[in-house]
Write a protein that binds this DNA or RNA. Structure first.
Lengths: 208, 208
DNA sequence: TAGATTGTTAATCGATTAACAATC
DNA sequence: TAGATTGTTAATCGATTAACAATC
């Protein structure tokens, strides 16, 4: 069992990884200050974060770019490919299916579900929309490990329950719902309307 | 000037608001425990959060649903309508333009920009895609106050700069970039790939 | 050696929560 | 009154950051 990395640190590691990817090959070493700049955090934060993963840093020199990159990928579990299923083939689900960033980051969308009979059987990004009731068999046969909920609010809890039944333990939820789920199931919520509401609050603050 | 509400509290207020919206009209009062359940937090957290906005709570009774709802909407600045401009008319930008949750929450997408000449002039959700270079005039004439970046990474900083030039002070950024910007400009970042990477990390933890 | 930069400690800061008096 | 539930304090917890010895 690996050391437990604080959640706040885990959420910053991908930023460091991205920052490393933007460093030109001519530069073989980088400092915590450079990573901090790229991630928008404090240099001490970077060093503290990296201290959880036994980093390849050399005092007076910095971090070896290639080594740190490989280490971060290993720690984040990105050395293997993850297969993703998306529930909800509406505008958002379709856009996510075609989102290039997922593939770039090593994730592959392999299944797309909907309950709407007018959508089932249609093809989006060379993926045929499947009836949601087949989720169990499809998730098992395609070894899906991450489920994405891109359905309306009303369907979200039901979809989450079926995902869990099908053996999925990681869920990315775009519906504005706080999902009930058993222990051990990780849910990340992306709530687009809430993000705008938070921005709206700040407009009231700065004299807008 | 209003009291400053901690950022963590601000990000939970929309959850309480949503929870209140789901309470049937027959129930005129609700407890911190009920709100906590709906938002997935501790009841003490709810009371503490609400204490920043002088809540209409009555000891032994609870909060008046209608009053608390109105207060939260007022505090979050949701009593007025906000106009939103989206940069990037690709799959994600198109999906966001059609996202029903924005309108439900009181936000109106009034402009959609792209630099791609094959997209300019086409119509998405009855909105004509505009050339990005016209952003200044359009933002001013339509009183846009929130900008959304749904472009590829390469264009994100440039779009942010133009948004700021055009007078936008609140930005929702879907590109995986940490944007440089002047003080007083609020940016919320939604990084879809990073969310998956965080989920991937947890799969390495629980024995996946 | 002098300069640079890490790794780590300890201090600071802020957020969460338990506890309970106030009070309906 | 007894029971319920808020508002608030104080304790706890965890995250951030300044500082600096270690060391290349």
């Amino acid at each position: 069992m690996k050391a437990i990395i604080p959640a706040a640190t885990v959420s910053r590691l991908p930023l460091y990884l991205r920052c490393l990817g933007e460093i030109p090959p001519s530069q073989t070493t980088c400092s915590s200050e450079q990573l901090a700049e790229g991630a928008g955090v404090n240099p001490a934060q970077v060093r503290k974060d990296l201290s959880f993963i036994d980093p390849p840093g050399v005092r007076g020199v910095g971090y070896d770019v290639a080594e740190l990159r490989a280490l971060l990928r290993r720690e984040l579990g990105l050395t293997k490919q993850y297969r993703v299923a998306i529930a909800g083939a509406g505008n958002l689900g379709s856009a996510l299916t075609m989102y290039p960033g997922f593939n770039e980051a090593g994730f592959e969308v392999v299944a797309l579900f909907d309950t709407d009979v007018t959508k089932i059987g249609t093809t989006i990004n060379s993926l045929t929309v499947q009836p949601f009731k087949n989720i169990g068999a499809i998730v098992a046969s395609l070894s899906v490990s991450i489920g994405v909920i891109a359905t309306p609010l009303e369907a979200a809890q039901e979809v989450a329950d079926r995902f869990v039944d099908a053996g999925i333990r990681s869920i990315l939820n775009f519906a504005p719902a706080v999902l009930k789920r058993p222990a051990g199931i990780e849910v990340r919520r992306v709530d687009l309307s809430t993000e705008l509401q938070i921005l709206a609050y700040h407009q009231t603050q700065v004299g807008g």
